[in-house]
Design a binder for these strands. Structure first.
Lengths: 254, 254
DNA sequence: CGACTTCTTGAGGAGACTCAAGGGTGGTGG
DNA sequence: CCACCACCCTTGAGTCTCCTCAAGAAGTCG
């Protein structure tokens, strides 16, 4: 793993990490594995789920319905941890699929156990990442349960935009989003046909376009109005996480 | 807190707890507080969220839409931890409301910090509870995004039933569920009127009735077929959690 | 070049919503 | 103890969003 940012992933949002912390994270990250576009990292029902750190590319996680339809849960980008929800269950609850060329680092459950024992502060940050994911799903649920097609797609675009903005450290007006209209439908609970018509409506309203896998946002406040769900601000001052890393580890060791 | 089970809550599903573990949990649980039916434990947007252990009664967590509609995220029962997702954010992402008379124990974030420091094994179990909640939300998302009204209500009933079955330790054919048809609509993304018609359809199919706040299940496999999402089995053999407390291992050896 | 996926548009249908009204029930206050 | 109010359940009628089915065009990969 050449780059610190790759192992830090999204944990860094919740507090400063010392050089030691980064070393701990590097020790946890296991061997790399490559996937082609369309490959399944794992399939719903697979036994003994593992975890993955997404290093390069995009993936999505989805649940398959008996009639062959698919509900996509979320799109993952580099820095995300994949497969954590599966830890609590005997079988993998979701199907993880590569949306592009993908590189992941495989993380063993035993490494996670070590992390909880040796670095309670980082473990707590991992806990917070999971809480963030829960709120993400709550917003998704509200969007799909209580807004119309245009609101759902607006919400999806805002969530992608927020994630990309965080990674880059600045807002950009357009970004690459390798999703077909069918996949947008899987994410929003719509059909590909209706996604097509709704994207045309978004363009006509001069709020946003999504053409040839490129999203261009013309009017963020307009998107927010359509989505109907407020932007969430991460809490970054977690006093309860404890003091500086070194301190914590010595206490924990005794 | 008179009863061990009250503090153990749902953590116990993931591994044995020693008497010491239970003491740690008791130390974390703070003062009790009572609420009447309809009271808000907290409102969306409130600052500095706390956590609560639900001791008695039912609550629900919901997101409010600009037009006044409500998307209920989930119904909580005794033993559930409320408010964890809010830890990661500046403001409370959800509104927590008492569906019945309610008693909670208030948990300070600093207590959670202590837990991660002193009891990594319990902290990891708490982490697993959060993963379980994520999968719960994923199933909800698939249900609302990809099934019809009857499927959504079937799924809701199955999830309530599974939760109650776990608490009681055995399946029962009927249970008390203090939700109005309007609240069922908030949970499933439907209107109260359509919930009414769909419940009639469920009764007519002789699968299930829900009258006067009492759910009676006549045909569980039938409900599963309608819901279209498989039952999930919790993983209980978490070797990676590390060793159980010493005296427990000795018990196991005998 | 052929097979496949993706995008696009049209036409018709269905599930869920909206609006409306009546009756039942429980809680509250006079 | 009764009257009143608020909430909940139920049913009807009409509407609209989104789905289904279909077919053609455009792009992509082997």
């Amino acid at each position: 793993m050449e780059n610190d940012d790759e192992v830090i992933g999204r944990i860094g949002a919740f507090g400063e990490l010392s050089a030691e912390d980064v070393d701990v994270l590097k020790a946890i990250a296991g061997p790399l594995r490559h996937f082609k576009r369309g490959d399944l990292l794992r399939h719903e029902g697979d036994a003994q789920p593992k975890m993955y750190l997404l290093v390069r590319g995009w993936t999505d996680s989805s649940i398959l319905m008996p009639d062959g339809e698919r509900q996509s849960i979320k799109v993952h980008m580099p820095g995300d941890l994949l497969g954590m929800p599966g830890l609590a269950f005997k079988k993998s609850p979701d199907t993880i699929r590569a949306l592009t060329e993908v590189v992941v680092s495989i993380i063993e459950p035993s490494s996670l156990g070590d992390l909880f024992m040796m670095s309670p502060r980082i473990a707590a940050m991992l806990f917070l990442v999971s809480q963030e994911e829960r709120v993400f799903l709550m917003d998704r649920l509200a969007s799909i349960g209580r807004t119309s097609a245009i609101g759902r797609i607006a919400m999806l675009i805002l969530q992608l935009d927020a994630r990309i903005t965080r990674t880059r450290g600045q807002q950009i007006e357009g970004f690459f989003a390798p999703l077909s209209q069918g996949q947008i439908g899987d994410l929003t609970g719509l059909t590909a046909v209706h996604v097509n018509r709704t994207l045309q409506k978004l363009a006509q309203l001069q709020v946003c376009t999504w053409r040839d896998r490129v999203v261009t946002i013309a009017d963020r406040p307009g998107l927010r109005d359509l989505a109907g769900i407020p932007a969430r601000e991460l809490a970054t001052d977690h006093f309860w996480l404890g003091d500086a890393p070194r301190h914590l580890r010595m206490q924990a060791a005794t």
